[in-house]
Amino acid sequence: MNADATFPGAASPDAADPILSVRGLEKRYGERIGCTDVSFDLWPGEVLAIVGESGSGKTTLLNCISARRAPSAGTVSYRMRDGVTRDLAALGEAERRVLMRTDWGFVHQNPIDGLRMRVSAGANVGERLMAVGDRNYGRIRATAADWLARVEIPADRIDDQPTAFSGGMRQRLQIARNLVTHPRLVFMDEPTGGLDVSVQARVLDLLRGLVADLGLAVVIVTHDLAVARLLSQRIVVMKDGTVVEEGLTDRVLDDPRHPYTQLLVASIPES
């Protein structure tokens, strides 16, 4: 299916065009439904939170829209840097991998899944640069050092392996590793989910600053409504694989309409 036909005018880049469009997305595991009938748009620089309890289908959805799993039905379209909107399913494996290591980022809940644990922090950050062809050691190292500073990792840890890092530091390193190629879209799967509460605040603060500075578009999956409120402008609420409510974050959290959203909002303690 030709994405251009679905979205007329997509070939003329315009900030008013979405960077990511999801239409009628469904993922089945045999008889079981992972998620179904999901449609939404994401605009450049926008942070969208997908919230719901575990098992609601939000991680399945994230994996489908980030091309890590093939959907059973529906389309996911992405507006490439050249302004052309492409159906992800129509991309070749090589194109998909290039996208993943240049224009996209993916922050895993567990930093071990997103880092090379037996490679130094500097090389973890530098890997993407080398993957896209940078062949100047000094420049790669300087860029890595700069990014470590931006995620508040001391300069003298550049040659240490992440195995020697605390959970919070690992997560910040994973963020730096993702952002070094200046992606336009970052997917995050419970980025603070595995951290102590005291450490969470620092990582969230850092994320909020970086997202704003870099004008990143973000899709973040979280079960924590406080995280959604802090980072996102819009929110999608999922239950049993379907979207039950969506809208501006403040509106949804302050005035939830669907009974399930009301339940979710009521279940968080007032801060």
């Binding site: 090389a123 080398m130 040659d159």
Partner: peptide, 16 residues
């Protein structure tokens, strides 16, 4: 897919 970034990671680590 010509994914050879990892090869240079090894060389980077050597120099570091």
């Amino acid at each position: 897919l010509e994914e050879y970034g990892l090869m240079h990671v090894k060389l980077y680590e050597d120099i570091a």
